[in-house]
Write a protein that binds this DNA or RNA. Structure first.
Length: 476
RNA sequence: GCCUCAUUAGCUCAGUUGGUUAGAGCGGCGGACUGUUAAUCCGUAGGUCCAAGGUUCAAGUCCUUGAUGAGGCGCCA
């Protein structure tokens, strides 16, 4: 059956037409006015109930959360607060919702409460807005890369490569866990497992993406990624989605430009597609933070996004960042928990926050990190101390992007792998790209949920993914 | 994994130096009103004070252990 969504009705406003609408009751005021939502847009459609014509047993079932169908004429609203409304001739209750037990009330709930009722939180305005924006961002990512000649490459989710060094991994096995086959040393014998070897859920598609890039020139991955780290923060998930472009014939500068262009493109796209949802989330964030002291509040959401859009990102080397931090007021006054004194230290959250939120007040790209705190595949700079790496730090989220120019020189790569105890013999498939037709190439990884956090202003990463997985939690 | 804080009605919270019958607002239910905008007004029901143990004449309040949650840190995207 064809029908208009509420978004279409509000946009087209075919006043005078008789329409049938489906949706869920948000509120029922005055036993007469239904605020109806179908999730297509943030705005409700007001359905005016004909109290004479509607049977009392129907009226009794109109409660928040109930699914209904309403048929009637669309008219210009007689009340203030909306332009049009439906004068319903008939209301059909498709699915009632017991108001005594339905958890979602027409009032403010905490995100914590909604997380506990995660199966129903989609019904709220906040999560509706977040997941509509999540959709727009995902689509925009594909459009961005497609417009630039990148191919979408599906890298494996089950992987035998355990040398990516990106964190603890989840084992994938079909073995009977109660009767594990053992080898001579008494260790689990994965030769008897489904794949004949020990396999895991992927922690990154980068190494496989490099294989694609060294043939198709420009590729990207966009898929789920898994880390078995016991991370309990507002920025980590055990299952998250990652975007990893990889470009042949590109250096670190090309890499940074791509990432910056992409973030700007995505924000522009969402502003265009979901301005009302952004407005709502901006208001939400302001309300949440209105009781905080001024210096603890976030940059207002829309202002933050506009800054990102119009300002060029700050670009500084690790060494410059280090000097800046070492000479900063909080460092001299001993305010940092991790004092900045020796070149080579990793930047801590508090340092990144200082750079982004106090010093530059916009996204910052930090490049050329000491090689000892970065991964084996990053290209060694001429100083032999730093690598061609870049991290993009953004307000509120911290590290949004991590990327690098890859080490394309076979000998240097092997030396780095040996230094970092990467099993060279198991990585021949990767090293072959450097043996046959190697070339400069670069790429980055962008955490999709962190991007959604950045764009929506949601504080906890668990609130920007439909079904969050984190230590101790795998509901649904 | 570490640190800090929290857990009281369906939800959001208050509950004083330990003191006798644990409160409010919202929500629910009943009623009134009928062009409302998280409607409003009147009435009403609703509690294993997270759990177990302890201290005390007396514990929501103090102590111990545990569970769960939140925030921070580390690991990173």
């Amino acid at each position: 059956m064809q029908h208009l969504t509420i978004k279409q009705i509000l946009k087209q406003a075919p006043v005078g037409d008789t329409l049938t609408v489906h949706g869920w009751v948000r509120t029922f005021r005055n036993e007469q006015f239904i605020a109806l939502t179908d999730g297509s847009t943030r705005t409700h459609l007001q359905v005016v109930v004909d109290r004479e014509a509607t049977p009392p047993e129907t009226l009794r079932l109109i409660h928040p959360g109930a699914a209904i169908t309403a048929t009637g004429k669309l008219v210009e609203s007689l009340g203030r607060g909306q332009d049009v409304e439906i004068q319903a001739d008939t209301i059909t209750i498709l699915g009632p919702s017991d108001p005594e037990t339905y958890p979602i009330q027409p009032k403010r709930h905490t995100l914590e409460f909604l997380r506990k009722n995660g199966h129903l939180r989609f019904r709220t305005q906040t999560f509706g807005a977040v997941f509509r924006i999540r959709h727009h961002l995902a689509l925009a990512i594909h459009r961005f890369f497609d417009e630039r000649g990148f191919f979408y490459l599906h890298t494996p989710i089950i992987t035998a490569s355990d040398a990516e060094g990106a964190g603890e991994m989840f084992t994938v096995t079909a073995l009977d866990l109660n009767q594990l086959p053992k080898d001579e040393q008494g260790r689990v014998n994965f030769k008897e497992d489904f794949f004949g070897k020990h396999t895991h859920l992927t922690v990154s598609g980068q190494l496989e993406a490099e294989l694609g890039a060294l043939a198709l020139s420009k590729v990207y991955t966009f898929g789920p990624t898994f880390r078995a780290e016991n991370s309990n923060t507002t920025r980590h998930l055990a299952e998250f989605w990652m975007i990893e472009p990889e470009m042949a014939f590109a250096d670190l500068n090309d890499d940074m430009n791509l990432a910056e262009d992409m973030l700007k493109y995505l924000i522009r796209y969402v502003k265009d597609k979901a301005a009302d949802d952004l407005e709502f989330l901006a208001q939400r964030q302001a309300n949440e933070e209105k009781n905080l002291p001024q210096n603890e509040r976030s940059i207002p959401l829309l202002e933050k996004l506009d800054n990102t859009l119009t300002e060029p990102f700050a670009r500084i080397t690790y060494t410059e960042a280090f000097d800046l931090l070492r000479n900063s007021k909080p460092n001299k006054k001993g305010r940092f928990k991790f004092p900045v004194s020796e070149w080579g230290i990793d930047l801590q959250s508090e340092h990144e926050r200082y750079l982004v939120e106090k010093k530059f007040k916009k996204p910052v790209i930090v490049t050329d990190y000491p090689k000892d705190i970065k991964a084996f595949y990053m290209r060694l700079n001429d100083d032999s101390k730093t690598v061609a790496a870049m991290d993009i730090l953004v307000p509120g989220v911290g590290e949004l992007v991590g990327g690098s120019q890859r080490e394309e020189r076979y000998d240097l790569l092997v030396r780095r792998m040996e230094e970092m105890h990467i099993p060279v013999e198991e990585m021949q498939w990767y090293l072959d790209t450097r043996r046959f037709g190697t070339c400069p190439h670069a790429g980055f990884g962008l955490g999709f949920e962190r991007l959604v956090q950045f764009v929506t202003g949601m504080a906890n990463i668990r609130d920007v993914i439909p079904f969050p997985r984190f230590p101790g939690n795998a509901a649904f």
